[in-house]
Design a binder for these strands. Structure first.
Lengths: 308, 308
DNA sequence: TGCCTGTTCTTTCTGCATTAAAAACAGATT
DNA sequence: AATCTGTTTTTAATGCAGAAAGAACAGGCA
């Protein structure tokens, strides 16, 4: 049966909203809440009914009011607020990229379903998405082949990424000075400087800043294929970033500095400077990733084979 | 239940193979057949059992022999040799791209399942694939949005395609003279000349030749993202080629000539010449496609709304 | 009239069951 | 020893059903 993730996430978000109200306050109308939480009125009604049930909300006639201020234990656990598919996607990527699963191994849907406690239907649908990432290959009427994050794979990704990002910078610098992107860029620059200023404390914030900068550049193209590709890249990097924790501080510092140069180049609107800085940064990033793959291959023993 | 498409396609391909043998001839072993038809021995055994049942194949002890030469009516209809998913994919693309379905309309899986006579499971899985094409957008817990082949969409595709193809030519010309790609290119060139020589009769062969040329170039990169993208492009073009039948002959002639120039440039290995010819050809192709979209928008009345 | 809540109907999500296909195993035959 | 066929065990493809979420309809009240 369908897991009521929308209900639970709505319930939690609704609680958070009520926490700001004083006890006794009138609740907003069902329509207002539905709009605010971006779920249907049907679901809001279910949430409100549950809140009444638990004595958090009371009603007089058609009007609802807050009975007591909700507390932390009133919330559902976060895991339950993800749909079966989304939850599996997260856990699966974590498992396959962080764990010891190696390129060339086969995955079977039935086993995964057992392991992750969901149905094969959900598994199949999600694995199909990863095909798109170039991570998995489907072999009809047979198991799935894990292609793995190999050096070759990273080269292919970066090859495309460089093309796309250079192309994106051209769209970016065509924006008029008044465009919101330039303001956003200034904010990103400040964020970078702030991290650099307290590097020892904050270097772990680098991935977010990185994602924000590259995303705004890619999005300037307005090209759905380029943006879609960046989403893939960002997802993969999110999960592979932690492969090599050594020098994380140093690597962040280098990348942040390269970013600042890159931002300067963008401001200058000089294509040559931009190309040079962008290429330089991407090459460093690519080399870093390849480096962690190799470290990983040498250190972690492949005691994988949980699944044949 | 699972439709036995593998069995039926194997059955047909097996028949075709037997048609070359004289009556009374010994059949190859199960293993050999399984390997040759690229299906499992289990399925081959089912096929052979069915052939015995129908008196096409007989057996003495463990040995099978051909009793009578199979004829056309012994085959299964082609439609049944496609898996539920593949069959739906084909019919759906045909329907949505050839029909009057317009950008911005909503699709719902339940209705499609009724219309195409398959289950919603299959529909969902396939629609997910088309997300990748940029054709559809999934809106969780709600219907699918058809983005359509708009002028904007075509511009985005060609923007990426130009980057990829220019990049691919660089890989291509790095191949040594002895590489099989150059031989294949020569064959493609001959094919082009042959079509041009009998243009009035053969211009309908152009799409195949076009696909073959561009594919060999893209594949030279060995980059899975580039090749995957070309697969998307090729599929879309396969279904949109027939939008504007006017001037099909003339358009093919232009493209074929541009291809020949492009091939010459590749042979010269001169990057500038290649870029110029490649760009020119892609711009023509893009303009042609945009032209047919506009024609289509003006002529075909949007009496679509089969689905709300 | 416009917004609210109550109700009903439709559609998606997701687990499960069933059958086709593959894979593994085992004895037989050359 | 290698290859063949017969048999059994697993796994993937796909339809279906039940519950959740969305959408539309309807009466009531400011």
């Amino acid at each position: 049966m369908k897991g009521n993730a929308v209900f639970k996430s709505g319930y939690n978000r609704c609680l958070r909203r009520l926490a700001h109200l004083p006890p006794g306050a009138r609740l907003p109308s069902e329509n207002e809440l539905a709009l605010a939480l971006d779920i249907s009125r049907t679901t809001i009604r279910a949430v409100l009914a549950a809140l009444e049930e638990r004595g958090i909300v009371g009603r007089a006639g058609g009007q609802r009011h807050l009975v007591r201020v909700p507390t932390e234990p009133d919330h559902f656990p976060d895991v339950q607020t993800l749909s079966a598919g989304a939850a599996f996607e997260r856990r699966f990527l974590e498992w396959i990229l962080q764990g010891d699963f190696r390129a060339g191994q086969l995955l079977n849907a039935a086993e995964l379903a057992r392991q992750f406690g969901t149905s094969t239907t959900t598994i199949r649908e999600c694995l199909a998405r990863f095909q798109h990432f170039g991570l998995l290959e489907r072999r009809p009427n047979s198991s799935w082949l894990f292609n793995g994050i190999t050096v070759e794979f990273v080269r292919e990704i970066y090859d495309v990424r460089e093309m796309f990002e250079l192309r994106a910078t051209r769209s970016f610098i065509e924006r008029p000075d008044t465009a919101p992107e330039w303001r956003e860029l200034a904010v990103i620059e400040q964020e970078h400087r702030a991290i650099l200023a307290h590097l020892d404390r904050d270097f772990a914030l680098f991935p977010q800043a990185d994602e924000r900068l590259h995303r705004i550049i890619h999005e300037a193209t307005g090209n759905r294929f380029i943006i879609d590709f960046y989403n893939v890249v960002a997802t993969l990097f999110h999960y592979t970033y932690r492969w090599n924790r050594e020098d994380a501080r140093q690597r962040s510092a280098t990348a942040l500095t390269e970013h600042l140069d890159y931002i300067d180049a963008l401001r200058s609107r000089d294509p040559r400077a931009i190309d040079a800085r962008c290429r330089k940064h991407l090459r460093t990033a690519c080399a870093t990733l390849i480096g962690s793959i190799e470290t990983r291959a040498n250190t972690a023993a492949p005691h994988a084979a949980i699944l044949t």
